[in-house]
């Protein structure tokens, strides 16, 4: 973030609608992380995955939260069932089989 002038703390803060001073304090862990909207802006600006960025701030996105809250028992069961599976096994579970040209 510091090496490319386009990604200086000041530039990033300006693009994401926060003050450089605030972003600096967030970076140093002196204040609580910003809200979801700002974190998603930061993720897009820095080329990071928004879900990963939110997770680093101890949050989950609103769409995931509402999906879980809509069917809490089902999703709780699902997450507990797959939480120890390796990534590739989880990916196999959640992904559709893509159709192509034939």
């Amino acid at each position: 973030m510091e090496t490319d002038p386009a990604f200086s703390l000041r530039q990033v803060a300006t693009r994401c609608g926060v003050t450089p001073a605030y972003l600096s304090r967030v970076e140093r862990g002196e204040v609580a992380p910003p809200g979801e909207e700002t974190l998603i802006k930061l993720a897009h600006d820095l080329g990071e995955d928004p879900d990963v960025m939110l997770a680093q701030a101890g949050k989950i996105s609103a769409d995931l939260r509402s999906a879980i809250l809509a069917r809490p028992q089902l999703f709780a069961e699902l997450i507990r069932a797959i939480k120890t599976m390796p990534d590739n096994a989880v990916l196999r579970i959640v992904r559709d089989v893509r159709d192509g040209n034939w």
């Binding site: 159709d99 040209n101 034939w102």
Partner: peptide, 9 residues
């Protein structure tokens, strides 16, 4: 490439 284009498994 034809296999990839067909998708599936």
């Amino acid at each position: 490439a034809p296999t990839t284009a067909r998708g599936g498994v």
